[in-house]
Amino acid sequence: MPPMQLTSACIEDLVLKMSMARDLDEIMTAVRQSARDLIGADGISFVLKDNDCCYYADEDAIGPLWKGQRFPIQSCLSGFAMLQGKVVVINDIFRDGRFPIDAYANTFVKSLVIVPVRQDDPVGAIGAYWSKLDGPSPESIERLERIANTAAVAMTNVALIKSLAAAKEEAAQARDAMILAMASLAETRDHETGDHIRRTQHYVRALAEALQEQEAYAEQLSDEVVDLLYKSAPLHDIGKVGIPDCILLKPGKLEPEEFEVMKTHAELGHAAIATAERYMSSTTPFLSLAKEIAHTHHEKWNGTGYPRGLKGEEIPIGGRIMAIADVYDALVSARIYKPALPHEEAVDIIIKDSGEHFDPKLVQVFSKIAPKFEEIHRAFAKGH
């Protein structure tokens, strides 16, 4: 390949590396590794604007320059290029006179070019240095300008990516806060529910993570899905907000007609989350899963559950997981109408209900990790 084509190809390679950079260090590394040879300079420095200073963040040179040092922007040639927003070319630093030559006294530098990174609102500069007078050629200046322009775009992209990541994180935190706020609505109606939703959230994650190790569930229970299960689990009883106090807080067994009203909390929860979807004019994996769990966690493997009488694998995996978590916590927790059962007795009841109330494969995994459920119950017991 002819030298001109080779140089052009190398520049394109550098441009590509910078455009794909994920952070500032990758941008500077790309410049350090390639720019000096492409320009034909004896040294390259990457300078960042740091408030009122020029920070010489990186360099590649035949001798030491100023890496790691800071200079006032008003008395630094890189700062001058940034403040003016234009390229500075000096063919002989000893005859220029605009800035003191003390900074160059212990270096090889005799001529240089400084190009601001982003001319309208510079965020830095790239300097090229020669150990001979009249080092910068028109071609080297043009190439350095292209490298600086690409660096400007790359730095803008990195800043945008970080901004989007921060916004995404903020949105996720807001979502999690809203989940807890919505779930706390149920807690205000039923003081037992608050501790219940926190414990079941952790039961769900423990069981889902154990199921990930099973080949049959590994694909459908990705890390992302497990995280969504964990975060949406607190909404499983949100529908209880719509149940009258006389039924929700009754200190005894419900009459058949009262139980029919209590059962409507699954439909009420589903409807509440569906309303949120309609308001957004779309669904999200989180809302879809939360709605699914709220609607199906009282379905039974044999088809005798509610509200739809789903059977077997017609019941979504989230509902099947929540069913075990929900019943276990109800068994080991004291209620106004019943005492708490010992952990071992609760585990036996769930195992005996395998294939009737619960998915047999899930019960098999639950039986192996049941001690984790006991640990969670103790850790999140009322008052902790």
Rank of each mutant, 00 (worst) to 15 (best):
D237H: 10
S184P: 00
L228K: 04
T193V: 10
R143D: 06
I238L: 11
A128Q: 11
K231G: 04
A181Y: 11
E209V: 12
T156R: 14
S140R: 01
D245W: 07
M155R: 10
L160H: 11
D134F: 09
S137C: 03
R189A: 09
T188C: 06
I126S: 08
E170I: 13
D176S: 11
D134V: 00
G242V: 08
L211D: 05
L180D: 11
I179T: 12
A154V: 01
A152C: 05
A159R: 11
E170P: 00
M178G: 12
E192L: 10
L221I: 04
G127D: 14
E170W: 13
A177V: 09
T193M: 15
E169K: 07
L160R: 07
E187I: 06
E209Q: 15
A172D: 14
K240Q: 06
Q220K: 13
E209R: 15
M155N: 13
N157E: 09
H196E: 01
A154D: 00
A186F: 00
I161D: 07
Q220N: 09
T193Y: 01
A152R: 08
T156D: 15
K231R: 10
E209M: 08
S232Q: 05
Q212A: 01
R143K: 15
A165F: 04
K240L: 04
A171H: 07
E145L: 05
L180H: 12
R199N: 01
Y203N: 02
R205C: 01
L229G: 05
A186N: 13
Y230F: 14
N149Q: 11
A206N: 03
D176I: 15
A233F: 02
Q212I: 06
E139P: 00
I197S: 00
L229K: 05
D190T: 02
A174M: 10
T150D: 00
V204W: 00
K231W: 09
L133H: 15
K240I: 02
P234I: 00
D176G: 01
A151V: 03
L221S: 07
D195I: 05
Y129I: 04
A167H: 07
